[in-house]
Design a protein around this nucleic acid. Structure first.
Lengths: 213, 213
DNA sequence: TGCGTTTCTTAACTTAAGTGAACGTATTTA
DNA sequence: TAAATACGTTCACTTAAGTTAAGAAACGCA
């Protein structure tokens, strides 16, 4: 596992780039708690900033992992392989966090996580988190706030999915995450929207048709 | 708002019943943290155990609320009214917790919460939680663990929903929450499964047909 | 108990998604 | 550069869900 990550990821070499990413992270954290310099240094010294190449697989089905991901730049996706077919279920882009269920439940992973674009990620592991949460209760508070917020968001997204038709779901996505439409391949978008690539293609043609007349 | 809750809910009168519910709660909590007698007393003295009658509306669209619910016994559901149609999106039964998004985001509620059966609920409000989390960091830790666990669960459920057909979703539900099939009206189950009541009815007939031949 | 409402089912018809196949266009890689 | 692979679109056909309507059964309340 460790060897895997050493191959897959590369730590920063340029201090400049690193500094920018640290600031982006601290800006994000400042929405939840106010960190002291000491606390900021504690985070930086964890060496969790990683540059990951497009196409890299971060987690495979069946693996046990303790890694969580936070996207500073780029995009990662989660997908299952069911009946030897890829089913993409989520995309995580800038300022979005993913702790795979297998980390929380300590079970082998049901899905894959891979990198859709050259990305800069924060990769932490749960042992590390236990340690730092013990030292700085502020982190514990931030994690609680963030989890609660993400849970609320996830439930709203799920509700929206349940209560709308495939076409409406596509239109919602165009409104709420227009960047995804551009940066993600159609067939992955399709399964993210709970349909087949052909259906998405047809549905798009139908919408264009409607707008013409 | 306060008046509303005073009408809607009734505190326990019998010490016995109350004791049982407290023990059920403490058993649940013990899966996350170990409480001292002092901490247990702190919880009990909050007076958050409520008996709620079937049909009671706990939260309405447009309301601002700080209340979270934890079901000790019974069942509550969340539903939207869209195009003057009820869309049920979730059921919470024994040992399940709901903090409506409006509480987290401090916005008016998008949906309704109501009581499907005579229930015993823990109703807490977020001010109360801030206070007790400040006093007992252990509660903060428990809340983080619970939120992370619920988020992982919610994401798995959403993934499962996206990757399966309406029929498969119904069969999954029969497997994973057979009690719901019994205790919940069909038309509410239908929108929970993302379809119309007629479709659920037809789909069930289809499944029975298949099993005959 | 009886009246009205809600809930569930069935049916005929419409609409849209799933399926399998073909085709053109990138993109990869040998 | 040529062959192979992956991707997106289109089409014809199948299957299933949405819609509208009607009737039966169950339930709630006066």
């Amino acid at each position: 596992m460790l060897a895997f990550f050493c191959n897959a990821t590369k730590k920063f070499t340029t201090t400049n780039n690193n500094k920018t990413m640290e600031n982006i992270l601290f800006d994000f954290i400042s929405k939840y708690v106010t960190l002291t310099e000491e606390e900021k240094n504690a985070i930086v010294s964890l060496d969790i900033f990683h540059s990951v190449k497009k196409g890299t697989t971060l987690l495979k089905e069946g693996q046990k992992s303790k890694e969580s991901y936070f996207v500073l730049k780029g995009c990662i996706r989660t997908y299952y392989i069911l009946d030897s077919e890829e089913k993409t279920t989520a995309f995580y882009t800038e300022m979005e966090a993913l702790t795979p269920p297998c980390v929380v439940n300590k079970t082998p992973s049901e899905y894959y996580v891979s990198c859709l674009e050259d990305s800069i990620l924060l990769i932490s592991n749960s042992d590390m988190e236990v340690e730092i949460n013990g030292k700085f209760p502020k982190f514990e508070i931030m994690c609680r706030m963030l989890s609660e917020e993400l849970l609320a968001k996830e439930r709203i997204d799920f509700d929206e999915f349940k209560t709308s038709s495939p076409e409406q779901r596509y239109l919602n996505l165009v409104q709420s995450r227009p960047d995804l439409i551009q940066r993600v391949p159609q067939h992955q978008l399709a399964s993210y929207l709970g349909m087949k690539p052909q259906s998405l293609s047809r549905l798009r043609a139908r919408i264009i048709d409607k707008n013409k007349s």
